[in-house]
Simulated scan of single mutants.
Amino acid sequence: MKAKTGYVFKDIRLLETALTHSSAVKAATNNQRLEFLGDRVLGLVVADMLFEKFPDAPEGEIAPRFNALVDARTCSEIGIEMQLEDLVRADSALKMRSRGSGGNYLADAVEA
């Protein structure tokens, strides 16, 4: 997973939880809480990046950029680029409906 994320997981259980969607059958835990936290961390990191990259831009100019970067579609595209589709545990029907387009389950995993 280091090759995909650039990070070595010290606790593999966190990775397993992050890659387990709430629709996964018989899963003891899922990524909802990590997704909640990750969404906030992602927002803070992206806001800081935009704040630094566009120091003179008004809020009305950087807000649309922020929204595009933290959007579920963008996170889903990142999940596809990272080839997470086969690694995420989720309901098979959900994954089949989303095949190729990523779907929110991939966005959730990226945030988690």
Rank of each mutant, 00 (worst) to 15 (best):
N104P: 13
N31G: 01
L37T: 07
K4C: 00
F51S: 11
G6A: 03
S76D: 12
F51Y: 14
R13L: 09
S23W: 13
A24I: 03
A28G: 00
K4A: 09
L69M: 15
V25S: 10
V46L: 12
S98Y: 15
K53R: 11
N31S: 02
P58C: 13
S76M: 13
T74Q: 12
V25K: 08
D91G: 04
P58K: 06
R89I: 06
G79H: 06
L94G: 00
V70Q: 08
Y105H: 15
Y105C: 14
D56W: 12
I78Y: 11
A93E: 12
N104T: 15
L84A: 06
V45R: 05
A93N: 10
R89Y: 14
R65D: 01
T17N: 07
E81K: 09
R13M: 08
A68F: 14
L106R: 09
I12D: 04
R73E: 13
L84Q: 02
E85W: 15
A90N: 03
S92P: 15
F51R: 12
L15C: 02
G43Y: 04
L87T: 05
Q83P: 00
Y7I: 12
V46S: 12
K2L: 08
M1T: 00
F51D: 08
E52N: 11
E35V: 06
D48V: 02
V46R: 08
S92T: 13
A112W: 00
K95E: 10
A24M: 07
L14V: 00
F51M: 11
V25D: 07
I78S: 02
I12G: 00
A3H: 01
S98R: 12
T5E: 07
K10I: 05
A47Q: 06
A90M: 06
